[in-house]
């Protein structure tokens, strides 16, 4: 660990590179976690199929490369297709579990996750696939090489996040979603078609996953069973940021990406995940202490 610290001391720019790379990774996690938080917050459904939807989006861009198109062109296609699929999944499955207790929705989305994996495995086989973007790199220093595809994905993730925030604040549907999240019964009383709101929310999340998946296929690799990676990180981020705190989700996503990368460098790659989870525990403990303090004030 100390020799790694010493390396960064010798070449401080290497530290910059590590944090930059981490932020690029984090942007994608933030996007995926944002969708999870949306569904969780509005519908109280914990979508275990989150990561699998990401991978599904990845395969859409892979399919685009098979047909000879650039994977980036698959982005709008993935957004639209996944929106439709999300709506369909809602109508077929999620609608039936949305008012039940937590375990029913966990089971249903877990089943959905298995289904997506197996179908992808049947169609594309279990091999690892990538979608090559061919965007190249630019080099600032020996130690700072930015893969353009990661930079673009940061920009796209940012643009999508901003678009969603504006949508939630300004549009009629966005307001209805927020109202439903606050109190579904009250929203229903006031004439909001909560069933449609739920369908839209779930479909929107599927779209977000699809877009993220396209980027994942260009940056890393996809395989029918890799969804769990993204599900787990999305859950960690949402748990750490707290529900209903969407800006917090985005910040935590960036933080998790950067911390994971830096910790992987400092302590060795095998401790990267452990470092992230320990950080989660610390955040939760801090919050617990804080809430004690708040209660004392009230008393």
């Amino acid at each position: 660990m100390f020799e790694n610290l010493y390396l960064v001391y010798l070449a401080p720019l290497m530290g910059v590179d590590l944090i930059l790379q981490g932020l690029f990774i984090g942007a994608l996690f933030a996007l995926i976690a944002y969708g999870l938080a949306l569904v969780w917050g509005v519908m109280n459904v914990k979508n275990l199929a989150q990561g699998d939807m990401v991978i599904l989006g990845g395969y859409i861009s892979y399919q685009a490369t098979l047909w000879g198109y650039h994977p980036m062109l698959a982005m709008p296609v993935a957004i639209i297709l996944m929106f439709g699929l999300g709506w369909l999944i809602y109508a077929l499955i999620i609608r039936r579990v949305v008012d039940r207790d937590m375990f029913t929705s966990l089971l249903a989305t877990f089943g959905l996750s298995l289904l997506i994996q197996q179908v992808l495995n049947l169609i594309y086989g279990p091999e690892v696939k990538v979608a090559e973007s061919g965007f190249g790199n630019f080099q600032l220093d020996t130690f700072i090489i930015i893969q353009n595809v990661r930079l673009y994905s940061l920009l796209i993730a940012g643009a999508l996040a901003i678009a969603i925030v504006i949508f939630m604040k300004k549009s009629r549907m966005g307001q209805a979603i927020r109202a439903t999240a606050q109190d579904a019964r009250a929203a229903r009383v006031l004439g909001i078609n909560t069933d449609r709101v739920y369908a839209f929310t779930y479909a929107l999340n599927a779209s977000i996953c699809g877009a993220a998946g396209v980027l994942v296929a260009m940056i890393w690799v996809i395989q029918p069973y890799y969804g769990i990676v993204y599900s787990i990180r999305a859950f960690i981020i949402v748990t750490a940021a707290g529900l209903g705190n969407l800006p917090g989700v985005i910040l935590t996503g960036f933080g998790l990406g950067a911390w994971e990368n830096v910790a992987g460098f400092m302590f060795g790659a095998e401790f990267a995940v452990a470092a992230v989870v320990i950080m989660l525990v610390l955040v939760l403990m801090y919050r617990l202490l804080q809430s004690y303090r708040v209660r004392q004030v009230v008393r």
């Binding site: 590590l18 130690f143 890393w220 769990i228 990676v229 994971e260 460098f265 990267a272």
Partner: peptide
Amino acid sequence: DLSDMTATLT
């Protein structure tokens, strides 16, 4: 799980 090697390659 995660397929990223940038820290190691750095």
